[in-house]
Simulated assay, not measured.
Amino acid sequence: MPARPLDGKTALVTGASRGIGRAIAERLAHDGATVALTYARDTAAAADALDHIRSRGGRAFLLHAPLGTHGDAARLWAAYDTAWPEHLADGGVDILVNNAGIGRSAALADLTEEGFDEVFAVNVRAPFFLVQQALPRLRDGGRIINISSGAARIAAPEITAYAATKGALDTFTLNLAKELGPRGITANSVHPGIVDTDVNAAWLRNNPAAQAHAASLAALGRVGDPTDIADVVAFLASHDARWVTGRTIDATGGAAL
């Protein structure tokens, strides 16, 4: 078999049971990486994602790792260390993709303090401490890829708190790039736009009017697919992106230009 871009690499993708996270995990496995897929609740979806990767010759394993409470990062890395000890003897990781996130569709006047705390705990605090605790195991020349959102650059008052978390994640990315650059580790953010995932299914799927409106917001004239985002992540994870760091990559199809 010809060499693949990520042969010999180990990746961890949070929130990898469905949607964008699953597409990223599948693509990284296709490119040769051994991929740890984390999930919070949907065991059946996680198992299906794992089976899909393995049925195509990929290497992957599951980690049940809910995020959003104190100690979540330590629990995730402890699970990582024990999940596949014969393969991951040194506990190292080359690619860390912070994809897991939750949204809060509430305007400023309606968002509760509890809702605010929850969205920041999952979308900001968890990636922060996952990276912090990954530093001793993240190999030189590694990759940190944070899945942010086009909402970080487009005013959307109905999701103010969610957008704020993604702005914070972009700032975190910028500082990681500066701090970890001497080790050859890159850090970048990816901004998806409206993507056809289970999260958006209730208002987007089987609704031609909603699909047409969503497509009209993008310069490329369609709704995004999870593979559109996964392909960008695959580039950032590869050797080809070795000279790209501290950047925000817009993957919205040209939304709100």
Rank of each mutant, 00 (worst) to 15 (best):
A73Y: 00
W77I: 00
R59D: 15
A78G: 05
I53M: 13
L67F: 00
D72Q: 04
G71S: 04
L67P: 14
D81H: 10
A60H: 13
A78I: 00
E86L: 11
L63T: 01
A74E: 10
A78M: 02
G58D: 13
G92L: 01
W77V: 00
Y80R: 07
L76H: 03
A74W: 05
P66D: 01
L67T: 12
W84Y: 14
R54G: 14
T82P: 10
P66V: 00
W84C: 11
W84S: 13
L67S: 12
A60E: 05
L88I: 15
R75S: 11
D81Q: 10
L88Q: 15
R56I: 01
G92T: 15
A73I: 00
G58F: 10
A78T: 03
A60F: 14
S55H: 11
R56E: 14
L63S: 06
D90G: 00
H64K: 07
A89V: 13
L67C: 12
R75G: 12
H70F: 02
A89G: 07
A65N: 07
A78Y: 02
D81L: 08
R56W: 00
W84A: 13
D90I: 04
V93F: 11
G68E: 09
A89P: 09
L62T: 08
H70C: 04
A73K: 01
A74Q: 10
L88H: 14
R59K: 13
R75Q: 11
G71A: 06
S55Y: 12
A83T: 03
R56A: 14
L62M: 02
V93G: 06
Y80V: 03
S55A: 12
Y80C: 03
L63G: 08
A60N: 10
P85H: 09
A78S: 07
P85F: 12
V93I: 13
Y80A: 03
G91P: 10
R56F: 06
G58Q: 14
W77D: 01
A83L: 05
R59Q: 15
A65P: 07
R75C: 10
D81S: 07
A83C: 09
G58I: 11
I53F: 07
G92R: 06
G91W: 12
R54F: 07
A74I: 02
F61Q: 07
H70I: 15
T69M: 03
G68L: 09
G91T: 11
G92Y: 03
R56T: 11
H70S: 11
G58R: 15
G58V: 10
L67R: 01
T69D: 05
L63I: 04
A89E: 12
G68K: 06
A83S: 09
A89M: 08
D72Y: 02
L76M: 09
L63E: 03
W84T: 15
A65Q: 06
L67G: 13
